[in-house]
């Protein structure tokens, strides 16, 4: 069985907001170490990977590995019924087809109970190899959100170039083009500043609609890390106290 007590429902609400438009149904894999989710979007271009560590919960118990198949739209609706600062308790029995959620109000005696149907999901999981990336960029997550939103007005794709100069985001639309250069900030470390580590010049092109989607996770962390190597998927990572959310995005490559 699973019983997990989260100090604030906000984390789950924000996580669901970050993935619900990318993925329709997914398995939350629960085990004694915590809760993990890995899911690809329908077109198999992007993958989201979530980890919530057992230590991030006020109380956590999971006796044996338990996949909780969830429709993310339904989960989002049920979580909307929780206030951000409610304590959130999720429970599932072994082989159950129901997930129960309890929201305890912080400053009153209000206790709300909801139940959600679980489903069997036959999803492909992928082996993601450990990669030594050629470039790592760490920047304020709000800055990343602004860049991808701004450039998505101009065109469908962004070219990301990491060089000695810094990291440059380039959009070449049909009617307009633009580019944004971020230099490493020497006097300011993350979360406010930008750090760039580079072993090799990197130049990759990605679809902006996915990056705009990933940027929703800025509600979970003030810092985002971009990890890039030529001709491999981009890793966009947001770390927060209880775990992380990571996105992988396949590049666009010339024939």
């Amino acid at each position: 069985m699973l019983e997990a007590r989260l100090a604030e429902a906000a984390i789950l609400k924000r996580l669901l907001d970050s993935i619900k438009e990318l993925v329709t149904d997914a398995n939350f894999e629960c085990n004694e170490e915590g809760i993990n989710l890995q899911a690809m979007d329908n077109s198999h271009v992007a993958l989201v990977s979530v980890k919530l560590s057992a230590s991030g919960f006020k109380k956590y118990r999971c006796d044996r590995p338990l996949p909780l198949g969830v429709n993310l739209g339904s989960f989002t609706k049920v979580l909307k019924c929780a206030k951000d600062d409610d304590v959130c308790i999720i429970k599932a029995a072994d082989d159950a087809d129901i997930l129960s959620l309890t929201y305890e109000a912080r400053n009153s005696d209000r206790i709300a109970e909801y139940e959600m149907k679980l489903m069997d999901i036959d999803a492909d999981t992928l082996n993601i190899p450990d990669t030594d990336y050629d470039a790592r960029v760490s920047m304020p997550s709000a800055e990343f959100t602004r860049i991808v939103r701004d450039l998505s007005q101009l065109g469908e794709s962004v070219r990301i170039e990491v060089s000695k100069e810094g990291v440059r985001f380039i959009s070449d639309g049909e009617a307009a083009n633009g580019n944004i250069l971020l230099r490493q900030t020497d006097d300011d470390a993350p979360p406010e500043g930008v750090t760039i580590e580079m072993n090799q010049h990197v130049n990759l092109t990605f679809s902006l609609k996915y990056l705009v989607n990933f940027a929703k996770s800025s509600t979970l962390s003030n810092v985002v890390q971009l990890m890039l190597s030529n001709d491999v998927p981009l890793l966009v990572s947001y770390d927060f106290n209880q775990g992380h959310i990571r996105y992988y995005l396949a590049p666009k490559i010339g024939d």
Binding site: H44, L126, A250, K252, G254
Partner: peptide, 14 residues
Amino acid sequence: KLKQKSLMSFFGKP
């Protein structure tokens, strides 16, 4: 002309 690659061409199934 660039072509969108699939993640499956980078990451294998376990």
